[in-house]
């Protein structure tokens, strides 16, 4: 097992009147190099789950695995784990605290005790990886760059640890459509050519659905679905009952299907929908 959980249960404030079971016996398994989406309504346990995967929380019961082993509570082990599993929080730029972009990205490698020459190598390669020009940006204040660039700096500051897994919580919130496309193509590249395992929690499925190998759906702390994207998006009624939705393109195909057109509804990209509707056209031309 590369990364996953077994009967993971997490209770916040146990033994108090405010006790809240945020995760209930969640079991899943992510393979190395997979691109995984975690979806679910607010309060379904997504953020709790990802904090377990890099050891920020420890289970009330059950186990969390990484690279074949159960995560232990040993501090040195956790320290190593957090280098290998990078976590990018929601709106990460709100947590910037350095005076320059360079120092922001250098924080983690310095914290790990690398000497300044190694730090420099890691900062430049992380900035290059996310497509930012170190020459013009490194000495700028992180608040003086654009929203899209800030998000990339936050990502670079995690990539500077050379992690094997990248976990991102709502990574495109507040980004415009070119910022979103740019971020997703970057994540795809890191996933496909560098073999990074990527796990994304998101409410916005339109652009990211096409990239996912598998989708996990959480609801009230339970894992209620784990499978390929096409399969989950073909369960329209169930998703709406859960307070979730469909990519806009899938919604159009459902509309066509309801009106009697013979089209598949497990499609979630523009090109996929185009091909499917053209198939109908060719059937009529025959």
């Amino acid at each position: 097992m590369f990364m996953g959980t077994e009967k993971l249960t997490h209770t916040y404030m146990p033994g108090t009147p405010f006790a809240n079971e945020a995760l209930k016996e969640v079991t899943f398994d992510v393979k190395q190099g997979e691109f995984v989406l975690v979806i679910g309504p607010s309060g379904s346990g997504k953020s709790t789950l990802i904090q377990h995967l890099n050891g920020l929380l420890s289970p009330s019961s059950g186990k969390v695995y990484f690279d074949g082993n159960a995560i232990s509570s040993d501090k040195r082990e956790l320290f190593k784990l957090r280098r290998r599993v990078g976590l990018v929080f929601q709106m990460p730029e709100e947590h910037f605290f350095s005076e320059t972009v360079y120092d922001e990205v250098a924080f983690a490698p310095r914290n790990l005790g690398f000497d300044e020459s190694e730090v420099q190598i890691r900062v430049s390669s992380a900035l290059e990886e996310v497509g930012l020009d170190a020459g013009t940006l490194a000495e700028r204040h992180p608040f003086q760059i654009s929203a899209g660039q800030k998000r990339l700096v936050a990502l670079a500051s995690v990539l500077s640890l050379n992690p094997e897994v990248l976990i991102l919580d709502e990574p495109t919130a507040g980004l415009d459509s070119s910022g979103r496309r740019n971020l997703f193509s970057l994540l795809t590249r890191l996933n496909r050519s560098k073999g990074l395992t990527v796990l994304i929690c998101t409410h916005h499925l339109d652009e990211v659905a096409a990239l996912a190998d598998s989708v996990l759906v959480l609801h009230h702390g339970r894992l209620i679905f784990n499978g390929p994207a096409g399969e989950i998006f073909s369960r329209r009624e169930q998703l709406y009952e859960l307070g979730l939705g469909l990519p806009a393109v899938t919604e159009i195909l459902f509309g066509l299907s309801e009106k009697g057109m013979k089209v598949r509804t497990d499609i979630y990209t523009l090109e996929g929908a185009r091909l499917e509707i053209n198939k109908v056209k060719r059937r009529h031309e025959k």
Binding site: S42, Q90, A173, G174, H203, G243, L244, G245
Partner: peptide
Amino acid sequence: DEPTAMLDPAGRR
């Protein structure tokens, strides 16, 4: 100002 950016689909609707 982007009142739905942080919300889940039901919250957005």
